[in-house]
Amino acid sequence: MNKKRFSFKFDSDEKIKFSLSEKKKNIIYSVLTLFIVAIVSAALLSGVNELMQADERNKNDADMLEVMKRILSADEYRKTENGFEKTKEILAVYEAYEGEEIKGYCVQVEVKDYTDTITLMVAIDNEVKVQAVEIVAMSENAGKGIKAKDPQFLDAFKGKDNYITANKGTPKDKNQISVISGATTTSKAVTEGVNDAIAVVSQIKADVASVEKETGEDAPETNEIPTETAPQEVAPETQTPTEGNVGEGGSAQ
């Protein structure tokens, strides 16, 4: 088959040659058209993307700010990177400043129930007590999980300060909450997220305490910090920025 076509191509009949070149012209024209269409589309897309990206980032920050204002009102929110172990669940940690004093922390956490990703904003005060929990984003596909947006469920987290467990039925313990019936997995995922947030803030608190001690008197470095996170946190470069904040916070105390 291949051979036949090959020989056909080189048959120097005037007519066939003509039609072949016509076909070739068509092919070239088609390819060029497609090429131009693709180039123009790509240029348009990259232009739109470029335009929107900066806008988007500002918008996202503004949205987060709005959520934080709602759940923990303060004058200023500063993103912090120090004093805690970074995991992929913790998206961002913000310190809420009232004047020059840290009023509390807002932790943005991402958790997964069995199908969906849920983004939470957890407000925690200085005594590592949960002030409020808000679901920032949740995939629509959650279906039943959408019940977790129920304010009654989210309010139940208020005042919790330790590892929270989610169980069925009425809570017996102080750090226990009841799951939403029909949305057990989602409730447990949200609870895990809040626990992560509490863990982060207590780590920051422990870090602040250890730095404080260190600056005051030459105390051993790894004081209240649990296990493996310790070496990371007392690394010299992560300390320096925290020290300033601690000084301010300490003097106010």
Binding site: T33, V37, S41, L44, L45, K59, A137
Partner: peptide
């Protein structure tokens, strides 16, 4: 093919717009 490219481009533009202006719905 050309229509496919054009439509896909417009859809991507729509997607970028939704991501920029309706971020909560973009998540959904």
């Amino acid at each position: 093919v050309a229509y496919m490219i054009i439509i896909a481009t417009l859809v991507s533009v729509a997607e970028i717009m939704i991501r920029a202006y309706l971020p909560t719905h973009y998540v959904n």
